[in-house]
Nucleic acid binder design. Structure first.
Lengths: 139, 139
DNA sequence: TAATTTTTGCAACATAATTGCAATTATTTA
DNA sequence: TAAATAATTGCAATTATGTTGCAAAAATTA
């Protein structure tokens, strides 16, 4: 059942179905938050080459399957795009919480907030809200 | 005239007045947006050791003279803190605009926005809002 | 100006990320 | 289905990024 979704995501994006892609997508589907490259290296029981992981992540970002999350400590985090993220419609509203202690990233996409108003001449295509602090587990 | 400000900033923060500190502060004062480590290495005509630049930036961040900006492509950006940033009062509320086209980062610190409400058990220490889009120059 | 403190630069190290290319694997098509 | 084609992977090498310890140099203090 999960498998079907993964395959259709890959096919929809004209990507060959390979072990690393399936495994990495699966990881994200089973993860509530976001993952860093290092997490993926550890969590994927099979050990794919680092380069393969880099390239897979990059491909997924290009296809709109994953997006990167800006972080205050500038580590690279990846998260699944919701739904038809590839259409670009849902790309403009991201709220994430990143724990200063355990570094876990939580998606808070359902959280409401008011977008800041921009000066004239600036056009917004996407807004990320990054809340740093201490998460419920580390409290 | 610029020189005086720089010296007073350093003195106010109990920092020795050195070539690299003066030069790097000067760079930021002459820059509208934000700078990455690499920019600074290039733009400072004199070539300071990489380590010195790292340490200088780190010191400035600790003292509240500069702050970092999270970016989606995870390059580390630094920008001058406005006014009394060193008091810490303005540290937990950053709004930045990063142009998709020219990559310039703008501080929009005076922009108002509502902080998202967090689930119970989460404590916020800092919130960053990153607006991506097209800036006034690229419009 | 001498003594003290702070900062710098070098060297070494550690980690993160990228590139080219040959070997492998997946897909296509005949 | 098997051969031909196309896409992807893994390896090796390279480059970029960031950190640490320590001795030399510079700045500050007395």
């Amino acid at each position: 059942m999960m498998g079907i979704e993964i395959l259709s995501v890959l096919k929809k994006n004209n990507l060959s179905i390979t072990g690393s892609r399936k495994k990495i997508l699966e990881l994200f589907q089973h993860t509530d938050g976001a993952l860093a490259h290092a997490d993926i290296e550890k969590k994927s029981g099979e050990h794919f080459d680092r380069v393969t992981i880099y390239r897979t992540l990059q491909t997924f970002v290009e296809k709109g399957i994953l997006h990167t999350i800006p972080t205050a400590d500038n580590s690279v985090l990846y998260a699944l795009c919701k739904d038809d993220c590839s259409q670009g419609h849902h790309h403009d509203n991201h709220v994430h919480f990143i724990c200063d202690n355990c570094n876990t990233a939580y998606c808070l996409d359902n959280t409401d907030y008011a977008k800041p108003q921009l000066p004239k001449g600036f056009k917004q295509t996407r807004t990320d809200v990054i809340v740093s602090g201490i998460c419920i587990k580390c409290n």
